[in-house]
């Protein structure tokens, strides 16, 4: 599928940064508000799929290779397991929350009951949200991109 008309491209140019900002907000505030790594990653991947619809998968394939996206997904997965293994090192439990209540990065313990949104809480959960967000963005975008490209190619080398 090649690109669509100029109206669609202009609308996507306006909407794409807003979608990215909203998705990254949902990822970053996953430990305070509804949302998290999966949902924010799905939002950002939808924005990237909008780019694929408007500009055509051949144009997107020229900008970014799917091997790079695949390595981004691997980076996200490795980061997730690394944080889990750090829990094994520092608190002797796999997936242990070693940063909670330690007054280091993200280490503040909130008061019990209804509180305001303090960004500096949560222990390892914001780090895991970020890793899973990167993983979901790259994974869903590479699925959409490869399927769109394969359905636009006339002849397959089967």
């Amino acid at each position: 599928m090649s690109g669509m008309s100029k109206i669609v491209k202009t609308s996507v140019n306006i909407l794409f940064p807003l979608t990215m900002i909203f998705g990254l907000y949902v990822i970053a505030h996953g430990h305070l508000t509804p949302g998290g790594g999966f949902q924010g990653g799905a939002i950002v991947a939808s924005g990237c799929a909008m780019i694929v619809v408007a500009y055509g998968s051949k144009w997107v394939f020229k900008q970014i290779k799917e091997k790079r996206l695949s390595s981004f997904e691997s980076i996200g997965g490795v980061g997730f397991i690394t944080v889990a293994l750090l829990g094994l090192v520092f608190s002797s439990v796999f997936f242990g929350n070693f940063l909670a209540g330690s007054n280091l990065l993200f280490g503040t313990t909130p008061a019990t009951g209804s509180t305001g949104a303090d960004f500096n809480t949560g222990g390892v959960l914001p780090l895991m949200n970020f890793a899973v967000g990167v993983k979901v963005i790259a994974g869903l975008f590479v699925i959409v991109l490869v399927m769109a490209y394969a359905s636009s190619v006339k002849e397959w080398d089967t």
């Binding site: 305070l32 508000t33 509804p34 909130p110 009951g113 209804s114 509180t115 305001g116 949104a117």
Partner: peptide, 14 residues
Amino acid sequence: VAPIFTSLPPGTTY
């Protein structure tokens, strides 16, 4: 309500 403590509705027993 949803199990999220950020600015709960007033009067929620949790």
